[in-house]
Computed example of a mutant assay.
Amino acid sequence: MSQPPLFRPITLRGITARNRVLISPMCQYSAVDGVVNDWHLVHLGKFAQGGAGIVMVEATAVTANGRITHGDVGLWHDGQIKPLERIAAFLRDNGAVPAIQLAHAGRKASMQRPWYGNAALTPEDQTRGDLPWPIVAPSPIPMEEGWLTPQELSEDEFGELLDAWRAATLRAVEAGFEMLEVHCAHGYLLHSFLSPLSNKRTDAYGGNRTGRMRFPLQVIETVRAVWPDTLPLAVRISSVDGVDGGIELADSVVFAREAKARGVDLIDCSSGGLLGSATAAGIPRGYGFQVPFAETIRKEAEIPTIAVGLILHPDQAESIVERGQADLVAIGREALFDPNWTLHAQLELTEEKETFADWPKQYGWWLERRESGLRKLEGWKLPFRRN
Rank of each mutant, 00 (worst) to 15 (best):
A167F: 10
Y116N: 13
D125R: 01
E160A: 09
E152A: 15
V173W: 11
E178A: 11
E144G: 04
I135Q: 01
G176C: 11
P134K: 02
A167N: 12
D156T: 13
S154Q: 14
S198N: 11
D203P: 13
G176L: 06
F158D: 14
G176K: 05
D156A: 14
L102I: 15
N118L: 09
L131T: 15
G106N: 02
W133C: 07
K200L: 10
T122N: 02
C184V: 04
A119I: 01
E144N: 11
P142Q: 04
Q151R: 14
K108P: 07
F158E: 08
E152K: 10
G146C: 05
S110N: 04
A119V: 01
E152Y: 00
E178S: 13
L161C: 06
L121M: 07
L197R: 13
E152I: 00
T122D: 09
S195W: 09
L102S: 02
G159Y: 05
R128L: 11
D156H: 10
T127E: 14
A185S: 14
A167V: 09
Y116H: 14
A103C: 08
Q151N: 13
R107P: 00
S154M: 04
S195K: 06
E181K: 02
E145A: 13
A172Q: 06
E152L: 02
L197H: 12
D163F: 05
A137P: 06
A172T: 03
W165S: 05
W165F: 15
R171G: 05
